[in-house]
Design a protein around this nucleic acid. Structure first.
Lengths: 216, 216
DNA sequence: GCAAAAGTGTTTAGAGTACACCCATGC
DNA sequence: GCATGGGTGTACTCTAAACACTTTTGC
């Protein structure tokens, strides 16, 4: 069981990795994970594994990706991995163990086994769900300006997103609401931005039927 | 490893189930599946398992659903199941083993363990992908009239689909094309329908970005 | 006043649905 | 001819992207 844990920092999508001290693949970087214990579901187990790396309360979203089972994915005895996507908001800053660090997904270090493939799967899942769900709540702080949210979406999607349209799409779908508060503007001036929040902090599909909708 | 194998027949979505002869859950109906063998991926393994029930060449699509791992999902020793969705076109009619039969998903018999939950997960995955992929190819025969395709989509989705709009949506997306052939009309008359086919028989996402598209 | 950033108004484009209408056949 | 089912033309709606414009601040 492995998890691609992602967050946004410095306008980049980062992944949580730990450096292997022992063979196989010594010094390469691995996804956090562990073995399924008795009496726990895979979801509960992966949260338990991740608790050794980050504060679990900061894990705002966890979901299954898929099973990776290529016979040669790790040397030696056959190991099947159930992979997960985990998300952490950008305001969280968990203290990490010595061997653990964040790495931009765009410029990964040498990774162990098939962990890069798993990370790319995690990134694609996140990108897809940004489009038709409210999953942005899992990357954003509790309150934020539209400009901050635009930077989060831009970093996750890998292209520039328009703040204007982002606000309108999420608002129309009922995923975003203004708190009524504003923040003072920065040193270079400008109108003070309003603070927004996600209306729900549970995953919701906001654009269920792309086509072939049931008759209204 | 378990598979929810679905097909359309008699305007209904049907699932492949086999009746248990021995405990636990004697006489209840189970999903086909088996254990992962050494040196095979889970995808290859589930195809091998299903080969005992149906002709594998008729399996037009197989994909992972998720891992079901509730500790009490089966009595006795803890068993984790990787679940799959399998699809069979409606013109295929494989000869089945004695203990195996098709059952409408709308009126399932008594099922074993959590197999009904897995089947409903399979149905939801199919319904979602009908909306944004060309997955209909896996349920339809090689050539078909739009009316036949409308019945397939209607049965799978559980509501009446318009033949007019179905043809237009799939055509505009480049998933559907006319073969140029026509069939003679039925005994009650009517214009002879044209035969269509899917342009690809591999899964393709036809409506990738619902929103927040990259700039064009 | 002026630059900067936030936020709103408005136009445009495209997809999808609904529905009227035409087409080709059996009887 | 007429019913029947297939297929096309077209209008309407809705979403979202693009962009101009207004608002509100710092300096």
């Amino acid at each position: 069981m492995l998890a691609g844990v992602l967050r946004i920092r410095d306008r980049a999508l980062q992944a949580l990795l730990w450096q292997r001290a022992r063979p196989p693949h010594t010094h390469r970087w691995s996804l956090p994970g562990g073995r399924l214990g008795p009496g726990e579901t895979v979801e509960r187990s992966i949260r338990r594994q991740l608790a050794e790396k980050v504060d679990v309360r900061e894990l705002t979203h966890v979901e299954q990706l898929s099973v990776f089972s290529a016979p040669e994915r790790v040397p030696g005895k056959r190991v099947v991995a159930t992979a997960f996507l985990g998300l952490i908001p950008c305001d969280a800053d968990p203290t990490l163990p010595e061997d653990t660090a964040w790495h931009p997904v765009e410029s990964l270090p040498a990774t162990a086994f098939d962990h890069e493939e798993i990370l790319l799967t995690a990134r694609e899942r996140l990108r897809a769900k940004l489009s038709y769900t409210n999953i942005g709540f899992a990357l954003a702080p509790p309150r934020f300006t539209v400009a901050e949210l635009r930077d989060i979406y831009s970093a996750a999607l890998g292209y520039r997103v328009s703040a204007t349209n982002l606000q309108r799409v999420l608002s129309r779908r009922g995923a975003l609401e203004a708190t009524g508060e504003t923040v003072s503007s920065g040193p270079s001036g400008g109108r003070p931005p309003a603070l927004f929040r996600f209306t729900s902090r549970d995953l919701q599909i906001t654009d269920a039927f792309a086509v072939l909708r049931p008759p209204s």
